[in-house]
Amino acid sequence: MARMKFLCDADRCIECNACVTACKNEHEVPWGINRRRVVTLNDGKPGERSISMACMHCTDAPCAAVCPVNCFYTTADAVVLHSKDLCIGCGYCFYACPFGAPQYPRVGNFGSRGKMDKCTYCAGGPEADLSTAEYEKYGSNRLAEGKLPLCAEMCSTKSLLAGDGDVIAQIYKERVVRRGYGSGAWGWKTAYRETVAI
């Protein structure tokens, strides 16, 4: 089985936000929930780089570790998913997540964060693949249809790569060697405890 990862090639990312709206479109994600976002560092200065960020599907995921109800699980493709049936909306996964991935619908007053929502790597949730229940709670399951996450598939500049970690690392390496520069595989060290050596 593949070890699925994301890699955002910041030297290609232009903050066009296609990944963000592709995600909204594919999963009908409501207003206020941002499973993916693009952050610009050093905005307006030479050196500025934008990076598309969502759940990185970490190795030994901190969210899963801190969850007080153990609602997380990792698929055979190394995708970190969770059960909204078990989630109690405590917010701990957000504190632990190095990438700000967990999102909570505001369903009431104080303390009433709804069930956590996050990027599923377009892989649904614990319900049966492609079932109604799965779609309602987690959105599409493209992986089960043999497709990759739509954010990466629709990326305007092929900056956001999704797929097996070794394969996308190789693509990135080849790019960097060819063009002679690369600002790094953002988040990899924190998420996967390894980086793309070039």
Binding site: N34, R37, V38, V39, T40, L41, N42, D43, S50, I51, M53, P62, V66, Y95, A96, C97, P98, F99, G100, W186, G187, T190
Partner: peptide, 21 residues
């Protein structure tokens, strides 16, 4: 960094401190 959505916490790209917590 900077994000356009009005959600200040989204502007944090990465906080490895999550691992420490």
């Amino acid at each position: 960094g900077r994000v356009t959505i009005p959600d200040s916490k989204a502007a944090t790209l990465e906080q490895p401190q999550g691992r420490e917590w």
